[in-house]
Amino acid sequence: MSTREKVLWVVAGIAIVVYALFPVGWIVSLSLKSSDDIANGQFLPTALSWENYEQILVGDAAELFLPALRNSFGIVLIATFIACVLSMFAAYAIARLDFTGKKLILSTALAVAIFPVISIVTPLFNLWRQIGLYDTWPGLIIPYLSLTLPLSIWTMSAFFREIPWEMEQAAQVDGATTWQAFRKVIVPLATPGVFTTAIIAFFIAWNDFAYGISLTSTSASRPVPAALGLFSGASQFESPNGPIAAAAVIVTIPVVVLVLIFQRRIVAGLTNGAVKG
């Protein structure tokens, strides 16, 4: 590669970083503007202000934001966990066993994945009202499974397919019991796949908005994306741009941290599930 080419690729790389970070930087900057500064027409705040964070963490909006944050974490983690356990079994069967109906399960997963959320929201809303799941944690966890399960099954079966299962037998041959062979050989090989799937499932459930606004109505189960629309300014007519920006930054922190730590695995998971490399 010539030096000129190298420089070109580096410049292109910088462009990508700017592309990816610019809107995030903007929302961070916005969250640091005080309410009087918000309309300054500039990218950066005139003076740094923690006013918005104060408002959502300890101030008026804390009652709204903190329960929402707790709900978001709780509901999303549980949904991710259930999806991972269920799809772990399913993916094991798909990757390892030979049984009729394998195609059916995979096609169902595909069909569920392309399902328009809005089409499910209406009937779920009716059903939940009737059986009392409206505005509860399970009332969101269950629909979140429709988002996380199909993807988890795909991604994990793609990972599991690549595990050299013969090694399990080899270990048994070496004198290990079935359980030992499974624990010492297969578990370490399978863990990265499960883990990666969990991260991607977490992202997907974390991103939900339509279920959140339609199936909840109080702090008992309202997740953060739905709570963003409830912030208010000093009066009901004033725009709460600042607190919304601050809350947006806070909910973005966990995903950014996950991305920074696990970027290599996430990429492998995303591409494995859809296009087998």
Binding site: P225, V256, V259
Partner: peptide, 8 residues
């Protein structure tokens, strides 16, 4: 590049 993907 993963950041836009992960942002809500």
């Amino acid at each position: 590049i993963l950041i836009p993907y992960a942002v809500i």
